[in-house]
Design a binder for these strands. Sequence first.
DNA 1: CCACTAACCTGTAGGC
DNA 2: TGCCTACAGGTTAGTG
Length: 294
Amino acid sequence: MPELPEVETVRRGLAPYVEGARIEAVTLNRKDLRFPFPRGLAKELTGATIESVGRRAKYLLFRLSSGKTLLSHLGMTGSYRFEALTFKEPSRYYEPRPEEKHDHLVLELSHPRHGKLRLIYNDARRFGFVDLFGDEAESPYLAGLGPEPLGNDFNAEEMAARCKGKKAPIKAALLDQRAVAGLGNIYVSEALHRAHIRPEVEARKLVLKNGAPSRRLGDLAQGVRTVLIEAVEAGGSTLRDFRAADGGPGYFQHRFAVYDREGEPCPTPLCKGTIKRIVQSGRSTFFCPVCQKK
DNA sequence: CCACTAACCTGTAGGC
DNA sequence: TGCCTACAGGTTAGTG
């Protein structure tokens, strides 16, 4: 489900309710997600206060008063939702409901303003996972991640360094979290369309002989940034089941230029192309064969 | 090191 | 309606 804009949307939805909340109780409804839960997870979390919720790439990072950080990846189908156990402002809360299928992790929280809340992690496919660490350097998941595409150290020169010598298609290079962190299958297709680059182009072809970025790579860096910014502003994309923590859908899917639009006209001004779908490394890629050049 | 495939797991949409 | 297949927003382990 979630790429950077969806994870950021979740983070923004969670922050007002979990920041400052104390974790009163933890329930694990099974022993693992994609990987086993960290040893002593419930014990480590219980009694701690969540000081802030951050994001790195597609990871949510809950900073705890104990000094530890809870890392959460949503995989393809992970989601968080709230239920209020006490109602300080009734209109804005969700009533407790029976447990749903695939509710794997439940945190009972007490928040100084919102009262008692239940934060529930649901994940049908269980490709998601959590980790707990004291220092970011200890986390194997954060090690080796490429730059944040919306941060200051993401630019065409940086991309050139990561693409240099790579024979892999640019589509695959952009999906590689070591090159740029946070893109997934949707936003890669969208960014390549914005930059008018065909997804099959070898990554190394976008780097000049002296290692400098080509103009097209500059366009691509810009395309990555703008599509992500616009998607975050729209609250992410809801294809099947993505929901922010407040239960609301995202709206960016209405603005896809190519993703899941096979057979539709290309939205590039004056372009008469028709969107095509191909499969690259086992996954769908969408592009316009007319305005996206080799 | 690089590139590619299969695997993990469940739900759903579409064809017949 | 039911059965079957293909596919889904991600990552990693294994292979050559």
